[in-house]
């Protein structure tokens, strides 16, 4: 007996609008302008993305610091089957990248062909979107620098 399975679209989403606040907002505004903005933590380290509170002491943070759009890979993993919504449609590396001038790293996709080309310590440069709107998608991914 043939059985038809009924299906219906059901998207999981967060249907609220929220303010990003002064620090994360500055980071997002920076992305729109093609800049990467961090914040100086209680111990002097520069956190990127900029965050509102120190992750160790919980102090309010306020000193914004612009860092470079070049940096180094601090760890990585290879994604050979990209899923819907991920930054690239072809295989890429997930990486934590510490931008030059920053002390912490953030998650980015690295468009580098195959897994043999990337390693911890590799130098990378941001690839920016042509039209930027103030979201994380303004930073498309990174490319390896020779």
């Amino acid at each position: 007996m043939k059985t038809d399975v009924l299906t219906a679209p059901h998207s999981i989403e967060y249907t609220y609008t929220r303010s990003t606040g002064p620090m994360i907002g500055a980071f997002m505004t920076g992305l729109r302008d093609g800049k990467i903005i961090g914040v100086r933590g209680a111990d002097g380290r520069v956190h990127v993305p900029a965050i509102d509170y120190d992750p160790v002491t919980s102090e309010d943070l306020s000193e914004l610091v612009e860092v470079a759009d070049t940096g180094v890979v601090t760890t990585w993993s290879w994604n050979d089957q990209p899923r819907s919504g991920q930054p690239l449609e072809h295989p890429f590396a997930w990486a934590l990248v510490r931008w030059d001038g920053a002390d912490t790293a953030m998650l980015v996709a690295v468009d580098c062909g195959d897994a043999s080309t990337i390693s911890t310590g590799a130098k990378v440069k941001a690839r920016w979107a042509d039209e930027r709107t103030g979201t994380i998608h303004d930073l498309c991914c990174c490319e390896l620098q020779s």
Binding site: T20, G85, Q86, M106, L107, T135
Partner: peptide, 12 residues
């Protein structure tokens, strides 16, 4: 803000 919109898979 900066991570979930990239839909990183747990295995990655």
């Amino acid at each position: 803000y900066s991570v979930a919109p990239l839909w990183p898979d747990a295995r990655g």
